[in-house]
């Protein structure tokens, strides 16, 4: 492309110098090439900006967290003592808490999101689908603190008085992991609230993918004597796997970094959950709770920035792995797939 643009331009210049060219045409060509190039440069500028911003964020995180990295090394990742008063910092507790909240959120939201996406794309009458879609988009825009308030006023009492005792009395009889002390606040409440938050995100992307499944593919299924349910589940859903995986990655990114809603319901206790009813702590809610205080001590602040850096790297790794997984799922044959992301 570069060559295509440059060579004729050089040629016209040569002609202009020898006086053989028609001036009007030369100038308009030059102008077009220039504006084209200018447009290219401005786009390039955008790309460079993103790259620069990312590098700066990464660099600053590295510099700011260096005291902690230098002092604790990799043991930061697998030790669980976090005691600012004694100057000892280990991230394990917060990593585990983040893992649980994200895991529960995805476990809950993925089936719900897929079912609502299917409902919207294939089952709801048009008017209802329009209303529900609008509501869902609004839901996606609700500030997370509102979800947190919903969590405190609705989910916590519900979990404490009904669902958590129920879990303890049923699954808890068999697995200790479900046999905790009902408290309402905790990783379960946080996971559910975050799960609700990412349902609209995952459902919207999945619905859009479903709506883009070629009509011919659907007809092929019907023509083979498939019912609607068979067509929707075995053909359409299968065709939107890339789009769905993309939406899961988006949802993961949102869940792993969610702060306010989690902070309000997780119980903010730096201990590793032993049961699903236990309280816990996530990286982002720790930062929100204590970062303004941590600045008082350089090592404390460095440890918290290092947590932020870890969060950044987790998101990065999951995104990359997600892309790899997609490539493998599709075996590089993305032709005809829908909403690959």
């Amino acid at each position: 492309m570069e060559v295509d643009n440059v060579v004729p331009l050089e040629g016209t210049k040569e002609k202009a110098r020898t006086g053989n060219a028609r001036p009007g045409r030369v100038s308009s060509n030059t102008f077009l090439s220039r504006s084209d190039r200018f447009f290219g440069w401005s786009l390039q500028g955008g790309g460079v900006f993103i790259l620069g911003l990312f590098s700066i964020v990464l660099l600053i995180c590295l510099i700011e967290s260096w005291p902690s990295i230098a002092k604790f090394g990799f043991s930061f990742l697998w030790t669980s003592t976090w005691n600012p008063a004694h100057g000892v910092f280990g991230a394990l507790t917060y990593l585990v808490g983040t893992f649980w909240v994200t895991g529960i959120a995805l476990f809950i939201s993925i089936p719900v999101a897929i079912f609502s996406a299917l409902f919207l794309s294939d089952y709801a009458p048009k008017w209802l689908s329009g209303i529900v879609s609008t509501l869902m988009e609004m839901l996606a825009g609700i500030p997370s603190i509102v979800f947190g308030a919903f969590g405190i006023t609705f989910m916590v009492p519900l979990l404490r008085d009904h669902f958590e005792p129920f879990l303890a009395n049923t699954l808890g009889k068999k697995w200790d992991f479900f046999n905790g002390d009902p408290m309402g606040y905790g990783i379960l409440a946080a996971g559910i609230v975050v799960g609700f938050m990412i349902v609209p995100l995952v459902a919207t992307v999945t619905r859009d993918s479903l709506l883009m499944v070629p009509h011919e593919m659907v007809e092929a299924s019907y023509a083979l004597g498939a019912t609607k349910a068979e067509t929707v589940f075995f053909v359409k859903l299968k065709a939107v796997v890339p789009g769905m995986v993309g939406s899961f990655i988006l949802g993961f990114g949102r869940a792993v970094g969610e702060t306010m809603a989690v902070l309000l319901v997780i119980g903010n206790q730096a201990s590793i959950p032993q049961t699903i009813q236990d309280v816990g702590y996530t990286i982002s809610s720790l930062l929100a709770n204590t970062f303004t205080y941590a600045v008082i001590d350089p090592l404390y602040a460095a440890a918290e920035v290092e947590l932020g850096l870890i969060l950044l790297l987790i998101t990065l790794v999951v995104n990359t792995l997600g892309r790899r997984l997609l490539m493998r799922l599709m075996g590089g044959r993305l032709a005809g797939s829908v909403g690959g992301g």
């Binding site: 976090w82 005691n83 905790g186 903010n268 309280v279 709770n289 204590t290």
Partner: peptide, 9 residues
């Protein structure tokens, strides 16, 4: 902001 051994915050 001490390192609370138990409870919830």
């Amino acid at each position: 902001s001490p390192a609370w051994p138990v409870g919830s915050g």
